[in-house]
């Protein structure tokens, strides 16, 4: 029963990791960009939520009404103003520019909010749970996070396969030069993809801030979890990313059962095992890179 509980908690944690990973997966899919600052943007969203909750006293989930569009706007501006300039055949510019941004965001957050660990208070929601049998309890909040991840991915699938913008995303991903011949402004489409990705990041950051302690320094670790979920799931498949997040969450939960310090290590090791056995991930779609 104890193990079953660990697995259930791991699956729910995987929902959060899937939310971390969805934005990364989306922007890689559309523009082959790997954003090293992704984790720091998650933490930025968490701090924006913190500032708003502290400033206005609203419930963290209500703050999303503001944080999501703000992060989307940041995403659009970031892509239009900086990242579009780095796209091309050479992988170095996007990699090094986003790496630089990662360090900048971390240190600006450090200057503004100090190195203290923070937490978003969500009141009764933090502890409410559904008891199943004697030993297993499913927390309402982790469940909400997991269901949100499923909902977000389903919604993104609809956008990708049922809308004009989604068709433009897929066409641009295939061949951006020919996409331009269709009248698609790649710079605008890329910026919209980043806006969408950071809208999801806003959700992920706020959920993370309610679930765990956070500080300006934890961004890179979130990037690594997101990255691992994407690779385990297979590049270019959003449902695969959800599966990747769940596998990572379960591995961490089981690792923590074995050894108190083993949680994160177990997640990384699970990733490396998948990488060695199935280099293209479990549910690959694109074959690039």
């Amino acid at each position: 029963m104890e193990w079953l509980d660990a697995i259930i908690q791991g699956v729910l944690l995987g929902g959060l990791y899937a939310l971390f990973a969805t934005g990364l997966s989306l922007i890689f899919g559309v523009m082959r960009l790997v954003n090293i600052a992704h984790g720091d943007l998650i933490v930025l969203a968490a701090f924006l939520g913190l500032a708003m909750v502290n400033g206005t006293g609203v419930h963290p989930l209500i703050s999303l009404v503001v944080i999501v569009p703000v992060m989307a706007a940041i995403g659009y501006a970031l892509q239009r103003g900086i990242l579009n300039l780095t796209l091309g055949r050479d992988i170095l510019p996007p990699l090094l520019v986003t790496f630089g941004l990662s360090i900048i965001i971390q240190n600006v957050l450090l200057e503004v909010f100090s190195a203290d660990t923070q937490r978003l208070k969500a009141g009764a929601l933090e502890t409410a749970s559904i008891a199943i049998g004697e030993q297993i309890a499913i927390g309402w909040f982790p469940l909400i996070v997991f269901l949100s991840a499923v909902g977000v991915i389903a919604a993104l699938q609809l956008v990708l396969f049922r809308t004009r913008l989604g068709t433009a995303f897929r066409a641009t991903s295939d061949d951006h030069e020919t996409a331009a011949l269709m009248g698609i402004d790649n710079r605008h489409v890329f910026a919209l993809a980043m806006a969408l990705a950071l809208a999801v990041v806003a959700l992920a950051g706020t959920f993370m801030a309610i679930r765990t302690n956070f500080s300006p320094a934890i961004g890179p670790a979130r990037l690594l979890y997101a990255f691992e979920a994407v690779i385990i799931g297979g590049l270019g498949s959003l449902w695969g990313t959800l599966a990747g997040g769940v596998i990572l969450g379960v591995a961490q939960a089981i690792g923590a059962k074995f050894h108190p310090g083993g949680q994160i290590l177990a997640g990384h090791v699970a990733f490396l095992i998948v990488l060695v056995l199935r280099p293209n991930g479990l549910f690959p779609r694109t074959r690039d890179r």
Partner: peptide
């Protein structure tokens, strides 16, 4: 080396974290 380009970059970072945690 199973990862390429930008993914190689983050992969090396994961391995460094594994060494650190180990």
């Amino acid at each position: 080396f199973r990862l390429r380009g930008a993914y190689f970059a983050i992969g090396t970072w994961v391995v460094a974290e594994v060494y650190m945690l180990s």
